Measured scan of single mutants.
Amino acid sequence: KSEISQVFEIALKRNLPVNFEVARESGPPHMKNFVTKVSVGEFVGEGEGKSKKISKKNAAIAVLEEL
């Protein structure tokens, strides 16, 4: 299972809201860097990556460590 689906499963079991959002985009158009924030109830994680998908996955990994 992907880290993102694990976050949603845990949140569902604990009845917590999940929110993913792109917090920052930086860099030139051909080499963008994304920072995504995820919140699961009061737990927050942040991930960085060269694409929105990678930064979302890294944010999920960060919040899984707290859950």
Results as ranks from 00 to 15, higher is better:
residue 48 E to P: 01
residue 47 G to E: 01
residue 1 K to D: 08
residue 41 G to L: 00
residue 39 S to G: 04
residue 32 K to S: 10
residue 66 E to R: 15
residue 55 S to F: 00
residue 49 G to A: 05
residue 13 K to F: 05
residue 3 E to F: 10
residue 58 N to K: 10
residue 29 P to W: 07
residue 15 N to K: 14
residue 15 N to L: 04
residue 10 I to N: 01
residue 62 A to R: 11
residue 2 S to H: 04
residue 39 S to R: 14
residue 40 V to G: 02
residue 51 S to D: 09
residue 34 F to E: 04
residue 59 A to W: 00
residue 15 N to R: 10
residue 40 V to S: 02
residue 27 G to Y: 05
residue 13 K to N: 13
residue 45 G to I: 05
residue 30 H to C: 09
residue 48 E to W: 14
residue 12 L to Y: 15
residue 14 R to F: 08
residue 65 E to Q: 13
residue 32 K to D: 07
residue 11 A to W: 00
residue 3 E to M: 04
residue 29 P to K: 12
residue 7 V to Y: 01
residue 36 T to Y: 05
residue 30 H to D: 15
residue 52 K to M: 07
residue 2 S to R: 06
residue 34 F to N: 05
residue 4 I to L: 07
residue 6 Q to S: 08
residue 46 E to L: 15
residue 58 N to C: 05
residue 45 G to T: 08
residue 34 F to G: 04
residue 48 E to R: 15
residue 9 E to M: 07
residue 20 F to T: 06
residue 32 K to F: 04
residue 63 V to S: 02
residue 46 E to W: 15
residue 27 G to R: 08
residue 47 G to W: 00
residue 8 F to S: 06
residue 39 S to M: 12
residue 38 V to R: 02
residue 14 R to D: 05
residue 56 K to Q: 07
residue 59 A to I: 00
residue 48 E to D: 05
residue 13 K to G: 07
residue 19 N to Q: 14
residue 51 S to P: 05
residue 13 K to V: 09
residue 45 G to H: 03
residue 20 F to Y: 07
residue 31 M to T: 14
residue 45 G to C: 13
residue 60 A to L: 06
residue 63 V to G: 05
residue 50 K to R: 14
residue 31 M to A: 15
residue 27 G to C: 06
residue 21 E to D: 11
residue 24 R to F: 09
residue 7 V to T: 02
residue 27 G to T: 07
residue 32 K to V: 12
residue 49 G to T: 01
residue 21 E to C: 11
residue 28 P to S: 12
residue 64 L to G: 05
residue 47 G to M: 00
residue 62 A to K: 14
residue 66 E to C: 13
residue 56 K to L: 06
residue 44 V to S: 12
residue 63 V to Y: 00
residue 36 T to P: 02
residue 25 E to Q: 14
residue 10 I to S: 04
residue 23 A to E: 11
residue 15 N to D: 10
residue 66 E to Y: 15
residue 21 E to A: 12
residue 14 R to Q: 09
residue 49 G to K: 00
residue 21 E to T: 14
residue 59 A to S: 03
residue 55 S to P: 02
residue 64 L to Q: 05
residue 31 M to F: 08
residue 46 E to S: 12
residue 29 P to Y: 08
residue 3 E to L: 08
residue 35 V to F: 14
residue 37 K to S: 06
